[in-house]
Design a protein around this nucleic acid. Structure first.
Lengths: 133, 133
DNA sequence: ATTGTTGCAAAAATTTTGCATTATC
DNA sequence: GATAATGCAAAATTTTTGCAACAAT
């Protein structure tokens, strides 16, 4: 496998994750890629996502309705999870500098941190207003 | 069920959660209570935890090794998850005031927020040192 | 009686795994 | 040919649910 230890499918899985802005689940990656790559199996997607997580190429950002959602953007940023539609949004605002400064507890070594807001997103709030009107 | 809508078992489940400091999973609550209440079923524990979450009596703080972990302390505080032993710790430090001030995005209504650190806890770090010595 | 709660077991749903096959070097 | 990656299906897990039985008023 020469230098880069990436098979064709592995690379496509990573590309799909990195180029998506949906903070996808394994199933989403599978369904999306399946169109291009008909002989793809869900197990492979799971195996590769686990690999990417170990390698730090991908981060688990939330568990929405029982599905783990991942982010190919590993730069420090927070997320907003809509309880209504289940979408996960990036929060561009940089609250993260504040929290990464803070060392949580003596003797505990922090590797990563996740800051997630839960609530109702822009679109779902708007929809609710339309219904009420 | 008169005023308080709490059955005996429901109350015991809530008490077990509130008095624990383990940030328990449903299974843990079940196993722990099972000793006192032999005729308890796991489904009941799940149903009640879901109820408590809706009522805001309990909060989901992390998903560790596929299990959702909850906290009966709903006051704003952060958590530390040890990737080694799976324990979930409270972080007493009040970083939360900082982040709850910040309104994430226009048109998004925030109901709750979760700040979780991942890494290796005090005890697991110490154990590693012993092994090396 | 009626309403709510539970036990039990089956069912869903997500994720992992074993093994034979295929791909890559 | 050796090593690694994959497909497929089964298995393991966690969580939910249907329904009959039970509890409480």
């Amino acid at each position: 496998m020469s230098g880069q230890n990436f098979s064709k499918k592995r690379q496509m899985i990573l590309d799909t994750i990195k180029s998506s802005h949906t903070h996808p689940s394994a199933k989403w990656v599978y369904d999306t890629l399946k169109e291009q790559v008909p002989d793809l199996s869900l197990g492979t997607v799971y195996r590769n996502i686990n690999l990417f997580k170990e390698q730090g190429l991908v981060v688990a950002v939330a568990n929405v309705d029982g599905e783990e959602r991942i982010d190919g953007d590993t730069s420090a940023h927070a997320h907003f999870v809509c309880k209504e539609c289940g979408k996960v949004f990036d929060i561009p605002e940089d609250i993260i500098t504040i929290r990464s400064e803070s060392c949580p507890m003596e003797g505990f070594s922090t590797e990563s941190a996740v800051l997630t807001y839960f609530g109702k997103c822009n679109f779902c709030t708007h929809n609710a207003n339309i219904k009420e009107a």
